[in-house]
Design a protein around this nucleic acid. Structure first.
Length: 468
RNA sequence: GCCCCCAUCGUCUAGUGGCCUAGGACACCACCCUUUCAAGGUGGCGGCACGGGUUCGAAUCCCGUUGGGGGUGCCA
C-alpha cells in the first residue's frame, strides 16, 4: 500500500504523437507534480501488427518537448507492455482457475449467426458452461457476473452499468496473446497505478476493467475520464482527417510553452481573467474535479493566438535563439549568405509580426538574398503609380549622401512626399518593393538602415532599370 | 439497434440557488495609434437548446424532449 499517487500515461506506438494524447499526458504530469506523485510511462505495444520502434522514440521526444522530461525524478519508465506478456497470460489463467473466465471456440461468423437467430446483438455467452479446456482456436473470455458495476469517476461522478449489457469479453486471443483490456489492467496492478486519467472514449471499457481489478483481488484505481478533443465537425480528432500530429505543430514553429498552455485549457480554465498562465500555476491549480464534461474543439486559430502571445513575451535574446534553428533550416536563401549579426538587428521588428516561428524567414529573406524575391502582383500594383520612378530616383540620389539612420531616411522620403502632396503610406510602397519585393514587411526605414547604403542604392537602381 | 456521456456567445471557458442586466479569451467588426504589416489601446457583435417542475428566487436542483458525442473487435 502506497500513499504516493501513481499516475500513468499509456499510449500505443501506432503513429505520430496525437495532440489529444499530449493533453492527457499533460494532465497526468501536472497532477503527479502537484501531488508529489509519479508519472509512469508505459508503451502499449501489444498489437504487433501496428507497432513500430521509431514511434516509441517519437513519444519520448514529444513528451520531452512538452516538458515531460524522462530524466525527472517523478518520471518513471518507459515500460513496454509487450515485455509483460507472461504476466498477462498468468493473470488470465488465474482468472480461468478461479472460474472468472472460460474458453470459447466460436468464430466471429458463428457468433453472428447465433446473434441473428436469437435476435440479439453480439456474443451471447454460449460457451459459458461447455467446459472447454483451451487449445488451438479457442479464446479465453471473462465471465461477466450478474448485477451492476458502478464506476467512481473524478470528473463524471458515479456511472452505473448494468452487467447484462456487457458481453463476456475476450481476455486471450486464440493465438494466446493478451488483449488490451487485460494487459492494461495487469500492468496497472503490477505498476501499482493508483490514478487512471484518460480520455472519455475509455469510459465504456472501465466497468470491464474494474471487474478485472476485482477478480484479480485488487482495489480499482481512482478513475477520471476527460472529454475527447474534436474537430470543427465535432467528431473525435482522427489521424486520417485532422491535423493531430504534435510533431507537425512543432515544425511549424509553435512554441512548446504555448502548446502546453493551450492544451491545458481545453476542458479546463485557470482562475482569473486570463488563460495565458505559466506552467507552475497550472500545476498548482489544476484539478480533475474542475474539468469540463463536454468535448472540446481543438481550435488552431486560438493556438496560434496563444503562440503569438508567447513569442512576444520572449526576451529578445530568447526570441533570437528560438529563431536560429528555423533560419538555419530554411531554403529561402543560400545558407552562406545568412548572418546572425544582421538578423539580430531586425529581430525585434520581427518579433511582434509573427504568430509562428516558421513565418520568420519570409519576413527577413530580403536581407539574405542577393536580390529580393519580387512578388509580381506587388510590383505591378505599386510601380503603376505615376510617381514610382520619381520617388525611386529621388531616394537614390538623396540616400547616396545622407546620414545613415532610419530617421534621416524617413525624413528624406517625408519631405519629398509633402512637397508632392502625397501620403507617406503611398510613396513608401515602391521603395519597399524595390528593397524587399513585397508590399508588407518590417518597418521600411529600419530595414533600409540594416540593408546598408550600397545595397540599398543598388536595389533602387535595379528597380529603376526594371521599370524601364 | 443497444449501452454510456454531454448540453452557457461561432469557438474555449467563468459561473456550484440570490453578487448574472451572464464575466473573460479566440475569431469577427469599428475606431485610435501608424511608414506597409503587425503589435498595442478603446468599443461593438454575440450565449444559458426546448418544455415542464421544485423554490420567495434557477444558467445553476429534478424530470422529460430534442440535439450532439463516445462505445459497441480475437484494435488500443
Amino acid at each position: 500500500m502506497t500513499h504516493v499517487p501513481r499516475y500513468r500515461f499509456a499510449p500505443s506506438p501506432t503513429g505520430f504523437f496525437h495532440v489529444g494524447g499530449a493533453r492527457t499526458a499533460l494532465y497526468n504530469w501536472a497532477l503527479a507534480l502537484r501531488t508529489g506523485g509519479t508519472f509512469v510511462l508505459r508503451i502499449e505495444d501489444t498489437d504487433e501488427s501496428r507497432n513500430s520502434p521509431e514511434w516509441t522514440q517519437g513519444i519520448i521526444d514529444a513528451l520531452s518537448w512538452l516538458g515531460i522530461d524522462s530524466s525527472h525524478p517523478q518520471f518513471e519508465g518507459p515500460y513496454f507492455q509487450s515485455q509483460n506478456a507472461e504476466l498477462h497470460v498468468a493473470a488470465a489463467h488465474k482468472l480461468f482457475e478461479q472460474g472468472n473466465a472460460y474458453w470459447c471456440d466460436l468464430s466471429a461468423e458463428q457468433i453472428q449467426a447465433r446473434a441473428k437467430e436469437t435476435g440479439k446483438q453480439g456474443y451471447d455467452g454460449y460457451s459459458r458452461d461447455r467446459g472447454l479446456t483451451g487449445g488451438p482456436g479457442q479464446v479465453l473470455r471473462f465471465r461477466v457476473p450478474t448485477g451492476s458495476t458502478v464506476v467512481h469517476d473524478l470528473v463524471r461522478g458515479e456511472v452505473e452499468f448494468a452487467n447484462e449489457t456487457i458481453e463476456d469479453f475476450v481476455l486471450l486471443r486464440s493465438n494466446g496473446s493478451p488483449m488490451f483490456l487485460l494487459a492494461n489492467v495487469v500492468d496497472d496492478i503490477e505498476m501499482k497505478v493508483s490514478n487512471v486519467v484518460r480520455a472519455e472514449e475509455h469510459l465504456p471499457n472501465t466497468p470491464k476493467q474494474q471487474m478485472l481489478w476485482d477478480a484479480l483481488g485488487h482495489t480499482p484505481p481512482q478513475w477520471a475520464h476527460v472529454p475527447v478533443l474534436v474537430n470543427e465537425q465535432r467528431k473525435k480528432l482522427s489521424k486520417r482527417r485532422d491535423k493531430v500530429a504534435l510533431e507537425q505543430y512543432r515544425e511549424e514553429g509553435i512554441l512548446p510553452d504555448a502548446m502546453v498552455n493551450y492544451l491545458m485549457t481545453l476542458g479546463w480554465a485557470p482562475a482569473g481573467d486570463t488563460e495565458i498562465v505559466p506552467w507552475s500555476s497550472m500545476v498548482e491549480e489544476f484539478r480533475l474535479e474542475d474539468v469540463n464534461h463536454s468535448p472540446a474543439f481543438f481550435d488552431i486559430k486560438k493556438l496560434a493566438s496563444f503562440n503569438g502571445d508567447y513569442i512576444r513575451a520572449l526576451s529578445l535574446q530568447d526570441f533570437v535563439s528560438a529563431s536560429l534553428p528555423v533560419l538555419a533550416a530554411t531554403d529561402a536563401w543560400p545558407s552562406s549568405r545568412f548572418s546572425a549579426e544582421v538578423y539580430e538587428k531586425i529581430a525585434p521588428l520581427v518579433q511582434t509580426r509573427v504568430v509562428t516561428m516558421s513565418e520568420v524567414p519570409v519576413m527577413v529573406d530580403f536581407l539574405f538574398l542577393e536580390d529580393p524575391a519580387i512578388d509580381q502582383a506587388a510590383w505591378d500594383k505599386t510601380m503603376a503609380a505615376e510617381f514610382a520612378a520619381d520617388v525611386l530616383k529621388h531616394c537614390m540620389s538623396e540616400f547616396a549622401s545622407c546620414e545613415w539612420n532610419h530617421d534621416a531616411l524617413k525624413t528624406i522620403l517625408e519631405s519629398w512626399t509633402e512637397a508632392k502632396e502625397l501620403k507617406l503610406g503611398k510613396t513608401q510602397a515602391p521603395i519597399r518593393v524595390a528593397m524587399t519585393g513585397r508590399t508588407v514587411g518590417p518597418p521600411l526605414f529600419e530595414s533600409i538602415e540594416i540593408l546598408g547604403r550600397d545595397e540599398t542604392i543598388r536595389r533602387l537602381q535595379k528597380s529603376l532599370s526594371r521599370l524601364g
